Amino acid sequence: MLGKKLVTAQKRGETRALCLGLGMVTCSVMMYFLIAITIVPFYTRSVWTAQTICKVLKTNIKDKVLCPNSKGSEDEDIFPYPCLQVWVNLTASGEEVMLYHTEDTLERNPKCSYIPGKMENSKVKAQIEEIATNFKKQQTFPCYYDPGGTQTSVILSRLYAPKGLLFAFLWPTLMFTGGCLIIVLVKISQYVSVLSAWQ
């Protein structure tokens, strides 16, 4: 009687462990799919892949620039803000080009190097002036350019860098490995129990 109860409990434990392992594998596959349709396309579209040194030539702050949203030009989607323009000398080619904060900045407003978040006008102006001062102090810094030459501008930091992509794939990989390991251990346990029963 006790032996039957132990066998039943063991089978229930194995079933639960198998369900856990299969659930982890399924979740990791779904995460891979989501990453493949959301992050990977942005990474492959980014042409700013080569790194070089940029030297600041001039910084300019225009008072206000209207920035229409890409979806439309409704009044609520247009907001005025001080526009920072940073021109740099690209060490790789010796050209004078405009610097943008990220790939997204160029798409949202090609007139400005930096797009501030929505906050009070006084804070935005102070933030942009501080950024301009930092550029004047720094003078030289690493930046990214397009080695193919399709984009003449450069960016300060990549939104979709290889490290970020690897980090995005890290968690589903760990979950997939853990799920497979649980399934393998359960199958080994079942095999060992069958062998011991035959003996």
Results as ranks from 00 to 15, higher is better:
P80C: 04
I128L: 07
E96M: 08
L57H: 10
I183F: 07
I61G: 08
V154I: 13
E107S: 08
F169K: 03
W171N: 05
A9F: 11
D146N: 06
V97K: 15
Y160V: 06
P147A: 08
E14P: 00
V7M: 13
W48M: 08
C67K: 14
G179H: 01
S193W: 01
I78F: 06
S193I: 00
A50M: 05
I128N: 04
F33H: 13
I78S: 03
T38N: 15
L18F: 03
W198T: 11
H101N: 13
T59I: 04
L99D: 03
T150H: 12
A161C: 06
L20W: 10
I131Q: 01
E14M: 08
K163F: 12
N89Q: 11
D63V: 06
E14S: 02
L34S: 15
K125D: 08
G3H: 07
Q139H: 10
I128F: 00
L20V: 09
N60C: 05
E96L: 07
I61E: 06
V154L: 04
M175A: 14
F167P: 04
V56L: 12
Y114S: 01
K64L: 13
V86M: 03
E76T: 07
A126F: 02
I115K: 02
W48I: 06
L57F: 04
Q127T: 09
K136F: 03
L195M: 12
L195F: 10
S113C: 12
L181V: 14
T38E: 10
F167I: 15
V192T: 03
V25K: 07
P82G: 14
P142V: 04
T140G: 11
C143N: 05
G148H: 12
I35A: 11
P41K: 02
V40D: 03
N121R: 07
I131G: 01
T140I: 11
G72L: 01
Y32L: 10
V29S: 05
K123Y: 03
V86G: 03
S70G: 00
K118E: 08
V86N: 01
I37F: 11
S113H: 05
Y114L: 10
A17Q: 06
L170H: 09
I53W: 10
L57S: 13
E130Y: 03
L57A: 13
I115G: 02
D77W: 12
K55Q: 15
T52P: 02
L22E: 03
W198I: 14
Q51E: 15
E103P: 07
E130S: 15
T140H: 08
I61V: 11
G21S: 10
W171K: 12
M30Y: 11
S193G: 04
F176W: 14
A197Q: 11
R16V: 15
L99T: 06
N134P: 00
T177L: 15
H101E: 15
K11S: 12
K125S: 04
T102N: 07
V25G: 05
Q51T: 13
V47M: 09
F176Q: 09
G179M: 02
K136D: 09
K5M: 14
Y160M: 09
